[in-house]
Design a protein around this nucleic acid. Structure first.
Length: 334
DNA sequence: CCTCCACTGGAAGATCGGGAAG
DNA sequence: CTTCCCGATCTTCCAGTGGAGG
C-alpha cells in the first residue's frame, strides 16, 4: 500500500511544484538580486493555512541554492520559537555561530551583535508564522541587519501589521507582497495525485476518491494530505488492497481531529484544565471560568496569567473569545 | 449624563530552574 | 558545594474600555 510515507508527511516539500507558478515567479524575482550579490527586498507571504506558503518558500529557496553557490539559508517557525532570543539563536545556528553561546557568558544583545557582525555569504531566512512572535521588534532589528533577506509568512495581512513595530510597518511598504488563495478543487486533486504517485502503490485510490477528499477539505492542502495519510494508514492496518470509500469516510473527521489533537498536546496542564472547563460549557464568562479554574487546579495561577493562557489558546485556534469587555465569553472552536 | 464595574492587556519587577564559574 | 546570571514564567499594579443602571 504505502511505498514512501515521507511524501505524505506535512513537512514534505516536492522537488517539482505544479501549481502556484505565479507565486513562485514573484518570489524568485524578488530574490533575484541575491544572484548578483545584491541585497534583496523583504517578501511577505499571506494566506490561509494549507495554501502552500511554507512549501513554496522552501521550494524557491532550494532552487536558489542550486543557482547560487555561496548562500546561507534558514527556516524558523516562530510558532515554536516565539521569543526574540530563540529566533536569533536559530538564525545564528544557520550560520554556525552558536558554538560558544552559553546563557551566562552571553550578554543580552550579544546574539544580535553577532548577526550584525556576520559577513559571510548572503543569508536568506524564512520566518514562518511570524505573527506568533511575542516581540516583533526583532523583525525591525533584522531588517536593519545587512546581508539578511527575510521571507515573512503570516496567515492574515491585517493581523500581522497590527502586531508590528511601527518603525517596521512603514519600511515594509516597499516589500513584495504575495497572496495565497485556497486551492481550487482540481488543483488540490493534482497535488493529491502527485503524492499518490510518489508515495502509494498504483491503483490503491481512484481519482473519484481524490476528488471527494479535495471537495471536503475546502482548498486546504494540509488537511487534504492528512486525510490521504490517515486513509492509507487505515487501509494498511486492515490489510486492504486499496483504499475504500469507507476508509476515506472515517479518515476525514479523524484527520481533522488529529490536527486539533496535536495542538491540544502542546498545552500545559493548567491550560488543559482551562480547555476542559470551557469544553464542558457551551460558553463561559471570564470570571466564572477563573472561579472554576481556581477550584480545579491544585496550583492555580493568577488571573492575569490565565488571560495569557487564553490568548495563547486563541492563537492555537482551540478557543474562541466572543465579544469585548463585559460581554465576553469563551467557547471551544468546533 | 455620570458612575460603577467586569474585563482587557501593557509594564515592571519577582521568582523559577538550569547551567557555569568559583 | 555556593554564587551568579540568564531566559522564561508568573505576579502585581494599573490605565483604559464600554455596557448597565441610576
Amino acid at each position: 500500500m504505502i511505498q514512501d510515507a515521507r511524501v505524505l508527511q506535512p513537512e514534505f516539500v516536492p522537488k517539482d511544484v505544479v501549481h502556484r507558478a505565479h507565486e513562485i515567479n514573484t518570489l524568485t524575482s524578488a530574490l533575484d538580486p541575491i544572484t548578483r550579490d545584491e541585497q534583496a527586498e523583504t517578501t511577505l507571504l499571506y494566506g490561509p493555512s494549507g495554501t502552500g506558503k511554507t512549501c513554496i518558500a522552501k521550494h524557491t529557496l532550494e532552487k536558489l541554492r542550486e543557482e547560487v553557490l555561496d548562500i546561507n539559508t534558514k527556516y524558523v517557525n516562530c510558532w515554536e520559537d516565539y521569543t526574540k532570543f530563540k529566533v536569533l539563536y536559530r538564525l545564528l545556528e544557520g550560520v554556525d555561530q552558536t558554538l560558544d553561546i552559553h546563557r551566562q557568558s552571553t550578554p543580552r544583545d550579544e546574539l544580535l551583535d553577532r548577526l550584525r557582525n556576520y559577513d559571510g555569504p548572503p543569508y536568506v531566512v524564512i520566518l514562518d508564522e511570524v505573527d506568533q512572535l511575542e516581540d516583533t521588534g526583532v523583525l525591525y532589528e533584522l531588517y536593519r541587519t545587512r546581508g539578511i533577506t527575510m521571507i515573512l509568512i503570516a496567515n492574515r495581512e491585517r493581523e500581522l501589521f497590527q502586531s508590528l513595530d511601527s518603525r517596521l510597518t512603514s519600511r515594509l511598504q516597499t516589500a513584495v507582497d504575495i497572496h495565497f488563495d485556497p486551492y481550487a478543487v482540481d488543483e488540490l486533486v493534482g497535488i493529491l495525485e502527485d503524492r499518490v504517485r510518489w508515495g502509494l502503490r498504483d491503483g490503491v485510490v481512484t481519482s473519484d476518491q481524490l476528488q471527494w477528499i479535495a471537495d471536503t477539505t475546502a482548498g486546504d492542502a494540509r488537511v487534504a494530505i492528512e486525510v490521504l495519510r490517515v486513509a492509507a494508514r487505515h487501509a494498511n492496518r486492515q490489510k486492504l488492497d486499496s483504499i475504500t470509500d469507507e476508509v476515506i469516510a472515517e479518515a476525514v473527521p479523524e484527520a481533522k481531529s488529529e490536527i486539533q489533537q496535536r495542538n491540544l498536546e502542546k498545552l500545559t496542564e493548567e491550560q488543559q484544565i482551562l480547555y476542559d472547563i470551557i469544553a464542558s460549557n457551551e460558553e463561559i464568562s471570564p470570571s466564572e471560568l477563573y472561579k472554576e479554574y481556581s477550584k480545579q487546579s491544585s496550583n492555580p495561577k493568577s488571573d492575569r496569567m490565565v488571560r495569557n493562557y487564553l490568548q495563547k489558546m486563541e492563537r492555537y485556534n482551540l478557543v474562541n473569545a466572543v465579544g469585548e469587555n463585559r460581554g465576553r465569553t469563551y467557547r471551544i472552536v468546533s
